[in-house]
Design a protein around this nucleic acid. Structure first.
Lengths: 115, 115
DNA sequence: AAAATATGAAACCATATGGTTACGCATTTG
DNA sequence: CAAATGCGTAACCATATGGTTTCATATTTT
């Protein structure tokens, strides 16, 4: 509801609250897809999926481009950094998990320079 | 709504969808607090906060213990690991961010051993 | 240019959600 | 033991949300 509370609502968290929307993100992770392709993966009707897509687009989690008569949607993963940032102060509580993440980073050969 | 769709809804994401609930988690991060203390930080009425607390408790994001006539709530940060895990495959998209996280890990002196 | 295709928007509906007030139940306190 | 304190639950309400059907619009196709 968030009827003008002092708390800033983050549209990202709101967008991620719905399982269908998370599934759409998962679907777009490997590759961009047209609206129809996305919709075909769900049991709800196409306009229903379109509404979820709209919410994801508004939250900048996906972007849209036109290609002929299709609308192609692509994941915009940078938007998820805000979730990552929010999680940061909680992470200190599970250090071992962090260590494996550190391994992952090293395995990817990310350069050690600051952002 | 999630009216029996094949998609498993994660109560954690649902819980995090509300800004008041995220604020409660932030509040409990430094220290455990009684229900009244938590409620006093918000403009909504106490029973309203109690309902948010219930949702967080059901999602295992906080735990409850009785102490006299008070109910003390503590953060259970481990539950957030599922969010962290969900984020994992998206993280490869912002490697530089990972590097600073790596610094954080090292700064904390987390031991390099597997979980 | 007409038919078909791809898709968003509008209108509508049932239910979920967040908030409120009223109440009940332990546990102090006086 | 009676009053006060702390707090969850129930009942209720307005609005948000997710889903549906119908429609309008822009591209292809034929």
């Amino acid at each position: 509801m968030v009827t003008h509370l002092g708390l800033a609502d983050n549209p990202i968290f709101d967008a991620l609250g719905d399982p269908t929307r998370r599934a759409i993100l998962d679907l777009l992770r490997p590759q961009a897809r047209s609206a129809g392709e996305v919709a075909s993966h769900f049991s709800i009707c196409r306009p229903g999926v379109a509404k979820h897509i709209r919410i994801l687009k508004d939250a900048k989690l996906i972007s849209e481009r036109s290609e002929g008569r299709n609308r192609i949607y692509s994941l915009e993963p940078e938007a998820l950094q805000s979730v990552d940032r929010w999680l940061q102060p909680y992470r200190v509580f599970w250090a071992s998990r962090l260590v494996s993440l550190k391994h992952l980073i090293e395995a990817q050969g990310a350069q050690t320079h600051d952002i």
